[in-house]
Computed example of a mutant assay.
Amino acid sequence: MSRPLTAAQRRVVEAADPVTGRLKGTQAQLAALVKRGLAFRHPRPPHDHFLTPAGHRLREEPATPSPQEAAPSPQAEPPAGQGVFAARVGGEEEPPAAGPARTREVHSAWQGLLELRRMTNPDSAVDRPCGWERTHLVRAAALALEAAGHPPAGPEGAGYRVRATPQPDAVAVHETDTEALRACAATLERAGWQTGEHTEPRTRARYLLASPRRV
């Protein structure tokens, strides 16, 4: 059984960029994460380190502190990365506040995702979703929509809603307005997704099925 991460290594993982998985830490910390299969060193300059899928999964799991970590220590450093960015999927009961700060966050997250595509797609393509998006379908589709300026739905009201589906490689996008729904389809297609418009059998409401394009 592998040894648990040290507190310092855990902080490096938790402080990783939530979209790209870019890591910051000492060379020893980064090398230790690579050895555990939780990070990889990018082959192109500047040879930054990024979380692997296993590292992303670990980052999203709650940490289980050891007895020593659970006890307060005057030397302990404050945990890094307190605020974790999440794209709005629509319908949140307590959505993040709108405004210039949120706009900057969304823009930064989208640019980070494009960079992740460039670094991890075999042909460095930025017009096609990458592995991270294929394992985080709802968050990836929502980021593409929010970054393009589509309004997410509030707890009750108009706007897009992105939801998981029984299909492992597709999400559903709902919009009360047909034109807005088709605008969402156009945005996702420009972002490298393939979409199809469907009708709910019971309500007759139109919705999109969207999945990441592979070629």
Rank of each mutant, 00 (worst) to 15 (best):
S2P: 15
L5H: 04
L5F: 06
L5N: 07
A7H: 06
A8P: 06
R10W: 12
E14T: 12
A15W: 01
A15L: 07
A16F: 05
A16D: 13
P18H: 07
P18G: 05
R22P: 03
A28D: 08
L30C: 06
A32I: 00
L33A: 10
K35T: 07
R36C: 08
R36Q: 14
R36W: 03
R36L: 14
G37H: 03
R41N: 11
H42P: 05
P43E: 06
R44T: 07
D48R: 14
H49L: 03
F50W: 09
L51K: 09
T52H: 06
T52K: 11
P53C: 08
G55L: 03
G55H: 08
H56F: 12
H56C: 01
P62M: 07
A63S: 13
A63V: 13
P65E: 07
P65D: 09
P67T: 07
A71S: 12
S73M: 05
Q75H: 11
A76K: 10
A76N: 11
E77M: 11
P79S: 13
P79E: 14
A80D: 11
A80L: 13
Q82Y: 10
Q82F: 06
V84F: 05
F85Y: 15
A86H: 14
G91K: 02
E94M: 07
E94A: 13
P96L: 09
R102M: 09
R102Y: 11
R102L: 14
T103Q: 15
R104K: 14
V106T: 14
H107W: 08
W110M: 13
W110F: 15
G112W: 02
L113R: 15
L114E: 14
R117W: 08
D123F: 09
R128L: 13
R128H: 10
R128C: 10
P129F: 03
P129M: 07
P129L: 02
G131S: 14
G131K: 09
W132N: 12
H136C: 08
V138L: 05
A141V: 08
A141C: 13
A142H: 13
A142I: 12
L143V: 12
L143M: 02
A144I: 00
E146G: 05
A148K: 04
A148M: 04
G149A: 07
H150N: 10
P152T: 05
P152C: 05
A153D: 12
A153K: 06
E156Q: 14
A158T: 10
A158S: 13
G159C: 08
G159K: 08
T165W: 11
P168W: 07
D169R: 14
V173L: 04
D177V: 09
E179S: 14
A180N: 00
L181Q: 10
R182D: 02
R182A: 02
A183C: 04
R190A: 15
R190W: 04
G192W: 02
W193C: 06
Q194I: 02
Q194A: 04
Q194N: 11
Q194H: 12
G196Y: 03
H198C: 04
E200V: 10
R202T: 12
R202N: 10
R204C: 06
L208R: 00
A210W: 00
A210S: 06
S211M: 10
P212Y: 00
P212R: 01
P212Q: 03
R213T: 10
V215E: 11
